[in-house]
Design a protein around this nucleic acid. Structure first.
Lengths: 202, 202
DNA sequence: CCAGTTACATACCCACGGTATGGAAGTGAG
DNA sequence: CTCACTTCCATACCGTGGGTATGTAACTGG
């Protein structure tokens, strides 16, 4: 009984298309991935793809959002598992860096995303996901007295930039597992500038 | 007497092509710029472009290097004009941020560069220019006792990432000139973590 | 002065993003 | 149940643009 409702059929094909797109965009990059290839990988034709998505960039945007949802969930999970706000922040950074070891993630989120969607659009999406988690972590740590006051939006952005760069650096090293401590150390040192001992005031 | 040597003719057309490419890539972005348009703007045809450059990416790479040469020179100039290594570092960062107000610079160096040339290639070029200047600034400040020790290569990379993000943030604000102080303050605060009072040891 | 190279222009190919069209399957009103 | 209408998707097609093949005039070295 392959009799399905329209909504069902539609959902199945769209999610198949997005999944195939995520796979191919992540592996080959945006420019080297054709709509035809995505459709074929999803078991449909170009017509189906253009029925559900306005154009290639729109489909890519969908993939980008998916990627954001996945990592922001992982970040939130990692942070809340920690005993206090400060270590939650550090653990979140570590989790982000580990995520950067995935080539598909780097390709989609760090390399192609800004070029394809534009910086503003990308940061707008990220501010609903990754940047939101980071900003809230900073806010919590500040409210906790573990971090000096400041423009949180700006601060989150700067830290995010440093983390992205760190993730790329890490991924490029021949032995990422061994290089991770050094990168984490430097990152923690940078963050350390913002730390404040909750017991003493200076 | 328009009689020119081969080398002369070649140099003229190549530099014209690069100049036109820099203009168009910076204004419209990599994807929206065609080789034909570049050639036309340079007063030649596609044939000339493909005679001097292997492909579109190669031409873009040339433009990218030019952009790097220009900014790294400006950074070095700004830094050496300062009285001490630490303020030289700060002034260099400020100069970089001001450079980010140029849309063409952002487009070529921050957005399209990594996507087109790949992260490794971009950082390899930058390590010969912008990142070199930054790393040397850090080295000088460290040797001067103004900054705590650390993995300079990694540190430069992290700071660079934060600065790029700061530059984008700045450029997107409705009034960059007014937003600059806040961004500089946050950036300086981040850098402050690495500062060390040269007179006291702890 | 001439063989060989360099510097282009012109003409062409084709891959790929996007559109137009057609038809099969589903849906909702009467 | 039926029939107009919509949704979903395939097929066929178009235009643009990156890249190549070819032709040719100008320069160069012997």
């Amino acid at each position: 009984m392959t009799r399905r409702s329209q909504a069902e059929r539609s959902d199945v094909t769209t999610s198949r298309l997005v999944a195939a797109a995520q796979e191919l965009f992540g592996r080959d990059g945006y420019a080297a991935t054709t709509i035809g290839a995505i459709a074929a990988a999803a078991g449909v034709t170009k017509g189906a793809a253009y029925h559900h998505f306005l154009n290639k960039a729109t489909l890519f945007r969908e993939v980008f959002v998916r990627e954001q949802e996945q990592i922001s969930a992982a970040l939130a999970r990692a942070a809340t598992a920690e005993p206090d706000t400060w270590s939650g922040l550090l653990q979140g950074c570590r989790t982000f860096l580990e995520h950067c070891l995935d080539p598909a993630f780097r390709r989609i989120v760090l390399l192609d995303g800004p070029a394809v969607l534009g910086w503003e659009a990308v940061r707008e999406i990220e501010y609903e996901h990754t940047l939101r988690v980071l900003t809230e972590g900073l806010r919590a740590a500040t409210a906790d007295g573990r971090m000096v006051d400041g423009e949180l939006r700006v601060r989150a952005q700067l830290i995010f930039g440093a983390l992205c760069e760190a993730g790329m650096l890490l991924a490029r090293s021949e032995d990422p597992a061994r290089a991770l401590p050094a990168v984490v150390t430097e990152a923690a040192r940078l963050l350390g500038s913002l730390a404040r001992d909750p017991d003493e005031h200076r």
